[in-house]
């Protein structure tokens, strides 16, 4: 019962996790802005979320628990969504030291991520206040 009550919030929770991790990765990138050969990292989460939401492809029918998953595994469990840190090895760097951190890009992403985090916090708070309102019978 209670798990149902908070099920809307769990996706926000996951997004908050991703946002926090993204902030960590950006801080790492910024601190390594002058490190020769450093390649910037980024967090992939929204792509996976989008995919799991729009996925309606073919799904393998399992007759045994030991079978492999085919196609859309579709666990519908938000907690299982991956949050991945990938290294951007693209050779977009014009710098001679092999570093591809673009400080303007990192600062902009950090600002964006900060606002997004605040939005998510507000979202989760409004979710809680709705539940509170119900518990208090709307008073």
């Amino acid at each position: 019962m209670l798990t149902k009550l908070f099920s809307n919030l769990s996706i926000t929770e996951k997004a908050l996790d991703a946002s926090w991790l993204r902030n960590e990765v950006i801080a790492d990138n910024i601190s390594n802005v002058d490190t020769p050969g450093y390649k910037r990292k980024e967090v992939k989460f929204e792509e996976f979320l989008q995919k799991s939401m729009s996925d309606s492809g073919i799904k393998g029918f399992k007759t045994d628990a030991r079978h492999f998953d085919i196609g859309n595994t579709d666990s519908k469990n938000v907690k299982d969504l991956p949050i991945k840190v990938v290294v951007d090895n693209s050779n977009s760097s014009v710098r001679l030291d092999g570093n591809n951190v673009d400080i303007e890009n990192e600062m902009a992403t950090m600002a964006k991520n900060y606002i997004k985090y605040n939005v998510l916090i507000q979202n989760i708070n409004s979710g809680f206040s709705m539940i509170k309102s119900v518990i208090n019978e709307g008073r």
């Binding site: 902030n23 910024i30 600002a111 900060y114 605040n118 916090i121 708070n125 809680f128």
Partner: peptide, 24 residues
């Protein structure tokens, strides 16, 4: 400039952590 960028990132992390305390 790199020092300033790191200061900005410290401030952002700090206010994000403080914001998380406002949940609920």
């Amino acid at each position: 400039r790199a020092y300033e960028a790191n200061v900005t990132s410290v401030n952002t992390i700090k206010s994000m952590a403080l914001k998380a305390l406002e949940i609920g």
